[in-house]
Design a protein around this nucleic acid. Sequence first.
DNA 1: CATGAATGAGTTTTCATTCAT
DNA 2: CATGAATGAAAACTCATTCAT
Lengths: 219, 219, 219, 219
Amino acid sequence: MLKPLTQDQIDRIIETAIRHFADKGFAGANINKIAAESGVSVGVLYKYYQDKTGLFTTCVRQSLDYLDTVFRETQAAGGTLMEMIESLIRKSQEAAREHPEYFRLYHQITVSGAPEQINDSEHGNVNVTELIEGGSAQLYRRLLQEAKDRGEIRADIDPAMFAFFFDNLMMMLHFAYACDYYRDRMQVYCGPDAADAGRDEAVRKQLMTFMEGAFRGGD
Amino acid sequence: MLKPLTQDQIDRIIETAIRHFADKGFAGANINKIAAESGVSVGVLYKYYQDKTGLFTTCVRQSLDYLDTVFRETQAAGGTLMEMIESLIRKSQEAAREHPEYFRLYHQITVSGAPEQINDSEHGNVNVTELIEGGSAQLYRRLLQEAKDRGEIRADIDPAMFAFFFDNLMMMLHFAYACDYYRDRMQVYCGPDAADAGRDEAVRKQLMTFMEGAFRGGD
Amino acid sequence: MLKPLTQDQIDRIIETAIRHFADKGFAGANINKIAAESGVSVGVLYKYYQDKTGLFTTCVRQSLDYLDTVFRETQAAGGTLMEMIESLIRKSQEAAREHPEYFRLYHQITVSGAPEQINDSEHGNVNVTELIEGGSAQLYRRLLQEAKDRGEIRADIDPAMFAFFFDNLMMMLHFAYACDYYRDRMQVYCGPDAADAGRDEAVRKQLMTFMEGAFRGGD
Amino acid sequence: MLKPLTQDQIDRIIETAIRHFADKGFAGANINKIAAESGVSVGVLYKYYQDKTGLFTTCVRQSLDYLDTVFRETQAAGGTLMEMIESLIRKSQEAAREHPEYFRLYHQITVSGAPEQINDSEHGNVNVTELIEGGSAQLYRRLLQEAKDRGEIRADIDPAMFAFFFDNLMMMLHFAYACDYYRDRMQVYCGPDAADAGRDEAVRKQLMTFMEGAFRGGD
DNA sequence: CATGAATGAGTTTTCATTCAT
DNA sequence: CATGAATGAAAACTCATTCAT
């Protein structure tokens, strides 16, 4: 990497690019507009990032790093399963309100048509899925396994699959707070104010009730 | 005059278009390629469909009609809540295996960047969300309310929100069977054979266990 | 020519085509729309007229025939020069109000970009100008020559050139009544009601005064 | 960076575009051909001009500016009415020989089918008619009014209408020198050499005689 | 034969990428 | 080296003309 761009400029490029990719998708975003809006020339974009895909990749990596950080913090907190779950939901709500664009961009990479390989200096060319989900999958599975071992949750479940269902619910919650379509959908189900910050606690409680029931079962 | 397109040809156009839109997204799909692959000229696409958006709309409508039909059948079946849920999951699995492209296309419309209005002769210009979810939202809410009234499920829940969580799990299941990203993700969580047809029953059982616990709670 | 088309149908085609060509120009008009609006198939258009240019040619011929007839009537009337001029202006005003589309189409053929050759069964392929102007040029020149010989107008003029100026004024009058641009322009010069039927007599009188002065000179 | 277009290149684009629009009309002109013939890529056309209409507008504005300049010069000269008229005719002849393409383009905008609005930074979106004629209409009307007040011309005329007739004659003269159709027509009336430069003086004299008679009347 | 649906070359316009300055 | 104008391939869309029925 060349030096002349300040960190501020780089941040601004990525921030702008994330917004554009998140809102228009990979194909719909326009490199020239991203450059102009970032206050840099197209030339430097192509100096710093191989091509459109390279820039996209960087944006995705940054978004994932953010999400990772959020979840790692929670993980570190410890506590009972339900305490951790509450913490995760709360963090998700905060993060989705703070940086909806990261979640929106995440949603974009789930769509076919987006570049499927991410070039990561750490991991080489990796499939996006592994990169993203590897971490939380293992974490959630472990949490559930431990909770099961401790007798906190029912014994007759497959921790992997329950972790999967659990993460499904979390993802959909993220999208409901960050993506237009899913927000609309939440409002269709739960009323026009369902996605407002004022309802966050109510939503969190209901979701915990749902999950708690799911994990504990009728015992 | 030249022979009008046979129903077969029209079907082939739509089928091809659905595949392209589902795989590349709205912006990424190419009208000329769809025409060529359908074995017709671009001209007929523009005779039959107003423009790219019109063709997309038709594809979406067809996909939604299919999904609607599948769920209406289930709805008609009746039974206890858990019986209906089992039926819904089973149908989803079958449908997602039979026509993954419909689910993939559905997924595409959840992405910002896709046309947001669908022109439906029946409904006029409608927001896609309402069109899609209006039906199942009402259905699921009612099912839960009735189950609650019958004492089949716990009393301390908000049926609207539980219906929302329930549908979230269903959607994610659909995507896991139909969309590359979500399938990969399911495999990361549950193992490389998780999405195989041979595991359908196991998945269904686990999901039902999960949902049953969620709905009944620890009583 | 084949028979199956009734005269009514042919009239309708030509009437429609004239309107389209007059309003959108040769390049801007659309054969398929003309056919549809005429209530016939494109096929028969191509049976009766070689191609777009052929149809255009026919439309032009018909418009010119109409204009020709109008002027021939006047010519037959006889009288002094100024009587004939009054008659010509009056006829022009009436004709331009009755069939502005013929004058508009005439205007279109003066534009480069329109087909320059007209295929006339009578004249073969002729340059449009000759076909149109040959007649009135000779007529006007003769009228002026005779008026000059009779001492009705000044002696020191070139009858050919004065005939040209005279026809220029007539053409511009036609366009002022028939073509949007020229009507607007007349209104800029003479006020917003200048092109209204109610002002026809005033316009005619002023134009006659103008012409009479021009022809007689200050003697 | 790549060298921006030189003024020469821009001039060449506009010159080429004017020629194409003047010769083929708005609908008939082809942006790609204009680019190719100007020695630039299509891309720059769309960087410098919003779209085809924008390029057309620029061409029209340039042509009108030129015509305006020509007439403003004459206006500044002063003198008797007939001196000014002679000057106007002479300038018209010179200008029409120097830049027939400007007059041809002017003619194109009188045709329905051309874009009707011109986007002028100075005037905003204006109707072409007003833009063009506003200036000369007022000028001519004033000239005639003053000449009338000075007793140079007859008293029983409507200066607005006579100004209109006068301008009609001037326009037709322009077209006769610049547009194929009108040149042919002039030749039909006045002989094959009528539009040659060698006849300019004769034409001018005849036209002045015509106008002088018209303005002075038989007194 | 009349039909009018299909054709596909041709047009406008966009935008990722290059490269002269 | 950074710049950002230029490039031109590619994509959506139109419409004169053909030709199977």
